[in-house]
Every structure is written in C-alpha cells, then in structure tokens.
Write a protein that binds this DNA or RNA. Structure first.
Lengths: 196, 196
DNA sequence: TTATCTTTATTGAACGTTCAATTAATAAAA
DNA sequence: TTTTATTAATTGAACGTTCAATAAAGATAA
C-alpha cells in the first residue's frame, strides 16, 4: 500500500478529517478513532505524523488561521482603497463558512477550548488581534487615529458577535450572508460618522 | 453525617462546584470526580441528585439562565423608562462576570457544547432570543418597529461580541467594565440615530 | 537484470489510564 | 426500626499512546 511522498497528503487528510469530526461530534466527542475513521486511515498514523492527538488539534487550528489569512491576501492588492479593504476583511471573516459549512462549529469549539489550552490561546490571540489591527489600519486612512482605534474595536466586536450568534443558532448560508451585510453597513456607518 | 432537608443545599453545592470546575478545567476536563471534590462530597451523590453528570450539567446551565433573568427583573420596575431599561439589560448581561469571575468561561464552554447537545441548544436559544426580544421591546418605545428590530439585532450582536472578545482574551473586571460602557454608548447612538 | 538492503508508510493489537455509573455498606435522624 | 443521606469500592467501557510487524518503494550492488 505505502507510496513515497505521502506525508503532505496524509497531513492534510487528517486535518480535514479533524475539522469534520469536531464539527459533527464536538471536541469532546472527537477521538483518534473518529478522526482516523473519517480519514480512512488507521489510528496509529496520527501519532506518526503529529506526535499525538493534541499535535493534530493544534495543526488543525493553525491550518484554519492560515486559510483565513490567505483568503484576505487573495482579495486585496496594492491599489485596494481603505473602504474596499474593510469590506474584504469582513468578507474573509465570513467566507470560510460558505466554503465549508462545518468550519464554523469547529472554530467555536477551538475557541472555547483555548480558555484551557495555552497553545490554542496563543493562536486565538493572534487571530483576534490581527482582525482588530487590520481594521484599525484601514480606518486610520479614513479618520483620526483615536476614532480609528475605537471604530476597529467596535467593528471587531460586531463582526464576532454577528458570527457567534449565527453559529449558535445553527444558521444556514443565507443567514450568514445577512450577517455579512449587517457588518458591512455598520462599518460604512462608522466611516460616515467619524470620516474626515 | 446525614441530615434531613439537605437536597436543596446539596444541589446548589454541586451546581456551584460545576461552575467552578468548568471554569478551571473546561467542559472536557470536568469529571464527576473534579466536581464532587470541589463540592467536598462523594462522586456518587451526583447520580443521586441529578441522575448523572449530564443532568447536573443541564441543571447548571438552567441555574445560570435563571440568575441572568432574575438579575434583570431585580433592576427594573414599572416606572423604568425605555432607555433606562436598555441600560439595565446591558448591565445584567455583564453583571454575572463581576459577581463571579469564573462564570464567563463556563458560559462559553456551555455554548460551544450546545452545538452538539440538543437540550443545551434549546436553552441557548431561549437565552439568545430573550436578549434580542428584551432589547426590541424597549427600542420599539423609542423608534418605528422596523428600526427597533434592526437595532435589537445589532445591539445583541454587539453585546455578545464585546463579551466574547473579553472572555477569550481572559480580561479582568476593568476590561469588562470598559466593554459595558462601549455597549451602552452604542445603544445610545442607535437611539439618537433612529429615535423619533 | 536480478538480488539484496534500506527507508518510508502503515496497521492494529496491547497496555495502562480515566471516566461515569452502579452497588453495597453505613451512619444519622425520624 | 425504618427512612433518608452519603460514602467508598467496584465495574466495564472508552480513550490515547505505544510498538512490533509488515509491505511497498527506492537504492545499491552483483
């Protein structure tokens, strides 16, 4: 059965299977068996490639964070203006949902666990601060620095709040699209309010 | 050791111990042993009073929901005006934090789990919808119904978002106070914007 | 080309641990 | 004495990890 050069393939297979299992069974219900079964591989392979269950969990979170980051990078370029950039940030934060419906539940599980897992908490902070500083960067081109920072804090909370409530109510894609629109119009209203 | 009429005392003891354990160890790390140890009781007592671990978990969530509800009821009376009532709703939603620092983490754990537990999800929906309809009720006295509903949806998201970000960044009470102020001024700005 | 050696990839059973639940025993109060 | 309250001991299932075995692929040498 074995072929050479399987490592990257298997790693991705196991990460995908982890997202799937956490979305379906929760972090509590996710075992090395549920993951390896989803991936169509044996349980031992997890320790082989990730050192253990914990290593795979952390690799999965890192993968999700990278996906979010890449999504935004793919949308903007050097001639994107500040307002457009703000809209792209919002789109990126709601985009993972549209690609894979199971991703949102998985995120929430990981964030809850980050309260009791140092490495997950570190990763969560990177994500949370990146959202706010990305927003602040663009707001600063549209208003004074103090207002910009305040606008970034409020926008980040609004985005996360809309997202959280949509996830918890097990919303469909339409509902997420609705939340994306609300977030965008809130950011636009902040620009009108404080904009120079 | 046994005394008569211990039931309500023991139940509360075990619920308090559950909040404590979930805050410290997370829902994953919470066992009937960690709970009973916190309560200074034996593990068997959990099955006796709650039928099992799951029953105790659900009773704990119901207790938290009731506390939140009572907190709001205690603040308002028949001569509270709409704007005051909105401020009290926000205060109540941030108040549990101040009383007990460990409560917020516990909430987040429960909400994450609600994605994979029918009864918890039902309770979560009650809470989520109550916040929004409480907000809508007061907004309707200050603006047209359509704007009131929109304001309620946005305010609920803002409150939950500020709360979520504060919890995840392991904020102290000052940070929560700051978030409470932001939420209040956001609601006031909505009243100014749409208010008749 | 064939035979041998080495590395890479993978499995699945065995092990020790942890957990929730149950049971039997016990102690106080009625 | 009977009932209520509680503990301590026990059970069996489920879990993550480890590890010996194996199989294919690639490399080397005859």
């Amino acid at each position: 059965m074995p072929k050479v050069g399987m490592e990257p393939v298997r790693r991705q297979q196991l990460i995908d299977a982890t997202i799937e299992s956490v979305a379906t069974n929760g972090l509590q219900g996710t075992t090395i068996n549920s993951i390896s079964k989803n991936a169509g591989l044996s349980s031992g392979i997890i320790s082989h490639y990730f050192g253990g269950k914990q290593g795979l969990i952390e690799a999965t979170v890192r993968y999700l964070l990278t996906s979010l980051k890449q999504d935004l990078i793919g949308k903007v370029n050097h001639q994107t203006n500040a307002t457009e950039r703000l809209m792209f940030i919002i789109e990126a934060n709601f985009a993972l949902v549209q690609q894979r419906n199971d991703t949102t539940r998985t995120w929430l599980s990981f964030w809850a666990q980050s309260m009791h897992d140092e490495e997950l908490h570190r990763l969560q902070n990177v994500n949370s601060k990146r959202l706010q500083s990305n927003l602040a960067f663009s707001f600063k081109q549209l208003m004074p620095i103090e207002q910009a920072n305040q606008a970034a804090e409020l926008s980040a909370a609004m985005i996360d709040g809309l997202w959280l409530r949509a996830v918890l109510s097990k919303s469909d894609n339409n509902q997420f699209k609705h939340c994306e629109k609300l977030a965008k119009s809130y950011v636009l209203s902040l620009i009108k309010q404080y904009g120079a």
